[in-house]
């Protein structure tokens, strides 16, 4: 990592904190994915990685390249925006698919929605 030697110490510390925060939260999220018991519980776990897990690493990368190239480098924020916008879509679709499959098989869903039968498309179109 010889390219990093000209960075000031405070920048290196700041980048390290963001890196460890992001990576740690992502790890805790996937740990929850493994440890939690039901699917509806597990669907909460990856949001740790996709909210502040991604946020921390994107921040670290932005600070690092801005310091390294002595000009603002903020294109990583696109990844942050992209992940923030897309994660709800995937998780919502997945949750609805799981609910649909559970109802189809007559499994015990924790608490049934008052809607009988046909559920509507979400308004987010």
């Amino acid at each position: 990592m010889s390219h990093a030697s000209e960075l000031p110490i405070w920048a290196a510390l700041l980048i390290s904190v963001f890196l460890l925060l992001g990576a740690g939260l992502t790890l805790v999220g996937t740990l929850g994915l493994v440890r939690l018991q039901t699917f509806y519980d597990r669907i909460h776990a990856p949001t740790l990685g996709s909210s502040w897990g991604t946020g921390g690493i994107v921040m670290a990368s932005m600070i690092f390249f801005t310091m390294l190239q002595s000009r603002p480098v903020i294109h990583e924020i696109l990844i942050g925006i992209f992940v923030t916008v897309t994660t709800p879509v995937t998780l919502m679709l997945l949750a609805r698919a799981a609910l649909h499959r559970d109802r189809l098989e007559g499994r015990d869903v924790p608490m049934a929605s008052p809607a009988d039968g046909e559920t509507d498309e979400p308004a987010a179109d």
Binding site: H44, T47, L91, M92, T119, P122
Partner: peptide
């Protein structure tokens, strides 16, 4: 709701 860990949007019934 979905990007906040701890809550997840499952379904929305637009009729009701």
């Amino acid at each position: 709701v979905t990007s906040t860990p701890g809550t997840a949007w499952i379904d929305y019934n637009s009729a009701r």
